[in-house]
C-alpha cells in the first residue's frame, strides 16, 4: 500500500499582512498513496485550502509564502520546482476541482473546446477525434444532451453540470492525483450524490489518488480511506476513516462528531464545543485547542503537544491521548 504519490512534510505556509505574520499552515504532514482517498476536515479558516493551494503552488504571493517544509509529488520536490514545470503538472498530472467551478472554467471557450484541449495535450488526437471524445466524456459523467452541451459555454450550465464538466476534464487527462476542495459544498444533496459517485468511479477505475477537502464528516465517511483532522493550522488527528469516525482520540474530533445532529435518531440536545476558533495569528502557547477543551490541564495550556502514534496508523496531537 505504501506507494506515495504525494508527501507533504512539515509544510509551513504563512501570510505576511499588516496585522503581522499569520501562520495559516503551521507544520502540516500528509501522505497520499496511489489509489487512496485522503480527506482533510476541519472548521472554516483552519488551513485546508491553503494546504491544497500550496501543493499546486497557487498561494497568492504576496502576501502568502511557503516558508518551510517539503512537498514531494512522486518523489519530485514541488517547493523548489519552477513555474514552467508547475504549469505542466497542474491540470495534467495533478487535476483540481474547486467549490466554485466557474473559477477554473474559462468563460469564453465552449465546453467542448476546454475538454478537447485537455485531451489533445495527452494524446495525438485530431480536433475532430478530441471533440468526439469530449462528447463521450460528457455522457460518461451523466450530462444529458451531450452533443448540444459540448458547444455551449460554462455560464449556460447549472452548478452541478459545471462540476461534472470539471470531473470530465479531470478524467480526460488521467491524472495521478486529484485535489478536490469542497467540490460539492455548493450543491444540493441529490446532485452531491451524483458527483461523489463519479469521483469514486475515477478512483476505482483509474486508481487516481484523491485529496478531498471537506467540512462534511458524512462526505468523509462515504469517500475516504484515511482522514486528517486540522485545527488552527495544525494536523491534530489522523487515522483510517473507521478509527477517526468511530474511535477518535482527540477531544476536538470527538466534539465535532458529537455536535452533529443525527438523521436516524432524535436527540434532546446537541453537544456543543464552547467558544470559537482562535483568531488567525493570535499568539498562543500550549495546545491550540486548550481554551475550548473541557479536559485541558496546566500542561495543555503551557506546552504544545506533538502528533504522536496512539494506535495502528492512528496519530493524535493531545497530551491526554498518550
Amino acid at each position: 500500500m505504501s506507494d506515495p504519490v504525494l508527501q507533504i512534510e512539515n509544510l509551513q505556509t504563512h501570510f505576511f499582512t499588516d496585522r503581522g505574520q499569520i501562520p495559516a499552515v503551521d507544520g502540516v504532514t500528509i501522505t497520499v498513496n496511489k489509489g487512496e482517498v485522503v480527506g482533510i476536515v476541519g472548521e472554516s479558516g483552519c488551513g485546508k485550502s491553503v494546504t491544497s493551494l500550496s501543493v499546486m503552488k497557487l498561494v497568492p504571493n504576496p502576501p502568502g509564502k511557503i516558508v518551510g517544509g517539503t512537498i514531494k509529488f512522486k518523489g519530485e520536490d514541488l517547493v523548489t520546482a519552477n513555474e514552467k514545470r508547475m504549469r505542466d503538472i497542474r491540470g495534467n498530472e495533478i487535476a483540481m476541482i474547486f467549490q466554485e467551478p466557474m473559477t477554473s472554467l474559462n468563460p469564453v471557450f465552449t465546453i467542448g473546446n476546454q475538454i478537447g484541449e485537455a485531451i489533445r495535450l495527452h494524446t495525438k488526437a485530431s480536433k475532430k477525434q478530441s471533440r468526439d471524445r469530449a462528447i463521450d466524456m460528457l455522457k460518461k459523467v451523466g450530462i444529458p444532451r451531450a452533443e448540444a452541451i459540448v458547444d455551449e459555454y460554462p455560464h449556460q450550465l447549472s452548478g452541478g453540470m459545471r462540476q461534472r464538466v470539471m470531473i470530465a476534464m479531470a478524467m480526460a487527462c488521467n491524472p495521478e492525483l486529484l485535489i478536490a476542495d469542497e467540490p460539492t459544498t455548493a450543491l444540493d444533496v441529490t446532485i452531491q450524490a451524483q458527483i461523489l459517485d463519479l469521483m469514486r468511479q475515477l478512483n476505482r477505475e483509474a486508481q487516481t489518488a484523491i485529496l478531498l477537502i471537506t467540512h462534511d464528516l458524512g462526505v468523509v465517511a462515504e469517500m475516504c480511506h484515511r482522514v486528517v483532522v486540522m485545527y488552527a493550522g495544525n494536523v491534530i488527528e489522523e487515522g483510517d476513516v473507521r478509527t477517526i469516525l468511530k474511535k477518535p482520540k482527540h477531544p476536538y474530533t470527538k466534539g465535532l462528531l458529537n455536535s452533529l445532529p443525527k438523521l436516524e435518531e432524535s436527540q434532546e440536545r446537541l453537544y456543543s464545543i464552547p467558544g470559537n476558533v482562535p483568531i488567525p495569528g493570535s499568539l498562543t502557547v500550549g495546545c491550540r485547542f486548550a481554551p475550548r477543551c473541557d479536559q485541558a490541564t496546566d500542561l495543555c495550556r503551557s506546552e504544545m503537544p506533538q502528533l504522536k502514534a496512539v494506535g495502528d496508523n492512528h496519530f493524535s496531537r493531545c497530551w491526554l491521548s498518550e
Binding site: S158, G160, L196, L245
Partner: peptide, 25 residues
Amino acid sequence: KALLSAVPTPDPDDVRERVILQGDV
C-alpha cells in the same frame, strides 16, 4: 425517499440503499 438516501451520514458502516436521482431539478 431519494432526498433522505442522498444524505451522507458520518458512519462508515452505514449501508443504506441509495436512490441516486438522475438529472437536475
